[in-house]
């Protein structure tokens, strides 16, 4: 062991320098060239509900609970982007099941024209990160009549917006379809 200890220490120091230092700087350098927004993540601009100009991150979901917007999914951490988290509730947990039931009830109160069997399950269950930026196309369609009524816009226009904002499976064949909630809500505000 004694003959290995000094080589081990020296090897450790030089590996830290190279694999934590040089490697990180190389990746950072590439980021400055090829990543969107200098490697800080894609940003989108919008006007808030209060009328102020602001910006947010396209990939970081926001809490949407006002009736004039497409709602985002429930979040275990209230869309706290400085403390992501899931509910970690087990499937048989009674308290959790009661919470899901109450989300269903709330959803029906705000969307009186829809049937319970139209609510996709992801709209009443919390996401993994608590920051899920997406909903499914079904999750958007089920909100059309509420948004059309409150915004006084024909339903077809809202449905067209959904079609336009649906991100299709990768290369058309891999994975699910989805809608970025922030982006579609920005478009909703711009709808004439």
């Amino acid at each position: 062991m004694k003959s290995h200890i000094f080589p081990a220490i020296k090897m450790t120091l030089i590996s830290i320098f190279f694999f934590a230092g040089v490697y990180t700087l190389v990746v950072w350098g590439f980021g400055q060239i090829i990543a969107p927004n200098d490697g800080k993540g894609e940003v989108v601009n919008y006007t808030t509900a209060g009328g102020a100009a602001a910006y947010g991150y396209a990939n970081i979901g926001q809490n949407f609970s006002m009736d004039q917007y497409f709602w985002s999914r429930p979040s275990a951490v209230g869309y706290n982007a400085a403390g992501s988290g899931a509910s970690n509730k087990g499937p048989s947990n009674e308290e959790y099941l009661a919470q899901v039931q109450s989300r269903i009830d709330t959803f029906l109160v705000h969307n009186p024209t829809i049937k319970k069997s139209d609510i996709p399950v992801e709209m009443v269950t919390a996401s993994g990160s608590g920051l899920d930026p997406h909903i499914s196309p079904k999750g958007a369609l089920v909100q059309v009549s509420r948004i059309a009524a409150i915004r006084n816009v024909p339903e077809e226009k809202i449905s067209a917006l959904i079609t336009q904002h649906t991100e299709h499976p990768l290369f058309g064949i891999f994975g699910p379809s989805q809608i970025n909630v922030l982006k579609i809500n920005i478009a909703l505000d711009q709808l004439k």
Partner: peptide, 8 residues
């Protein structure tokens, strides 16, 4: 089962 899963 979407609890704890992401839409994307």
């Amino acid at each position: 089962a979407m609890e704890g899963k992401e839409v994307r």
